[in-house]
Amino acid sequence: MTAPLSLGHRTDLMVLRLTGSEITELGPLTLVRTPDNPAYRWGNFVLVNHLSDGPVWIRAEELFRGAFPGETTVRFGLAPSPAVIVLPGHIARLQLEGDVALASGAPPSAPVPDGMSVRPLAGDDDWAAAQELQRVNNAYEDDDDVAFLTRQVAAYRAAVERGSGRWFGAFAGNALVGGLGVFSDGGPDARYQSVDTHPDWRGRGVASALLAAAGRWAFDALGAQRLVIVAERDSAAMRLYERLGFAEVDVQLRLSGPLSALHA
């Protein structure tokens, strides 16, 4: 019997579908592929819906190897969010990570900082600035990382242009100093993506203003009934979201590591 998806994975899959990923459900396994962006690590993985069944893990590894030939790093999402995790010995060699999924049933409230404006992106220059902001915040320098980011931003823009979401920017004059996206497939949940503030502008209320503006729009334009966001536990981002009224729902679990570790 498969387990219910954690809120983080469920809304991740929603955004992945909206931005062009291929998602194939195979009983206790879900294959996620993003052919247009093969370097997108968590756009190319296997989601495991039944953690305690040993044969499922054999199938999961076989599915990953077949779907991503030549890949040396295996990536498994763990669908449920159990209090106690028991993994087969060889799977337990992989690194387990968990991010917190938080939700709010109402848009947050926050003022726009003095001298700034918050609005949706409009046109090539805005989107180029949004990509550069993400590059700076993620310290992407090599060609592979920049190519991944270019494809990812293009996918977000295409989803926005199809009406599935919107990307908001915070501007100081003409300079983009913060940004984020919000997306929904028409269901009750809207999911934030890529909350970014330029390092020189942190601590000034930029992210709060963006979250508020995007949240209001998601409720009004997308018909959202709940806003979802994911953050690293005990991080500054999580503390900010909690101050704005978001509360923890569950944990989004992932396993990754060298394929060779599975047979060490």
Rank of each mutant, 00 (worst) to 15 (best):
T2M: 00
A3C: 01
L5R: 02
S6I: 07
L7A: 00
H9G: 09
H9A: 05
R10M: 01
D12F: 02
V15P: 00
R17L: 06
L18E: 00
L18Q: 03
T19V: 06
G20K: 02
E25I: 02
L26F: 00
L26N: 02
P28K: 03
P28E: 05
L29W: 13
P35W: 07
N37W: 10
R41S: 12
W42D: 07
G43E: 07
G43S: 03
V46F: 02
P55W: 04
P55R: 05
V56A: 08
V56G: 02
W57Q: 11
W57I: 05
A60Q: 04
E61G: 05
E62H: 13
E62N: 14
R65S: 11
R65N: 12
T72V: 03
V74T: 08
F76W: 09
G77D: 00
A83L: 07
A83M: 10
V86T: 08
V86Y: 04
I91Y: 11
A92K: 15
A101V: 07
L102K: 09
G105Y: 09
A106M: 11
S109T: 08
P111F: 04
V112I: 14
D114W: 10
R119F: 01
P120F: 06
P120T: 00
P120Y: 02
L121Y: 15
G123T: 07
D126V: 06
A130W: 15
E132N: 14
L133G: 06
L133Q: 13
R135T: 10
N137G: 13
N138P: 13
Y140S: 15
D143S: 14
D144G: 14
D144F: 15
T150A: 15
R151T: 07
R151V: 06
V153Y: 10
Y156S: 06
R157W: 01
A158S: 07
A158Q: 09
V160C: 12
S164D: 06
S164C: 08
R166C: 12
R166Q: 12
W167I: 07
F168Y: 14
F168S: 07
G169C: 13
A170Q: 05
F171H: 13
G173E: 13
G173L: 08
L176S: 05
V177N: 04
V177I: 13
G178R: 08
G178V: 00
G186R: 04
G187F: 05
Y192L: 08
Q193H: 03
Q193I: 04
V195P: 08
W201Y: 14
W201R: 12
R202I: 09
R202W: 02
G203V: 08
G203S: 11
V206Q: 13
S208A: 14
A209L: 03
A212D: 10
G215L: 07
W217Y: 12
W217E: 11
A218D: 11
A224Y: 03
Q225T: 03
L227K: 00
L227T: 06
V228G: 10
V228A: 08
I229D: 06
I229C: 01
I229S: 06
A231N: 11
A231G: 12
E232M: 10
E232F: 05
R233V: 01
R233F: 00
R233G: 08
D234S: 14
D234K: 14
S235N: 09
M238H: 12
L240E: 09
L240D: 12
Y241M: 13
E242R: 14
R243L: 01
R243S: 11
G245D: 00
F246L: 03
E248F: 05
D250P: 11
Q252C: 07
L253Y: 14
L253K: 09
R254C: 05
P258H: 03
L259C: 04
S260P: 03
L262F: 00
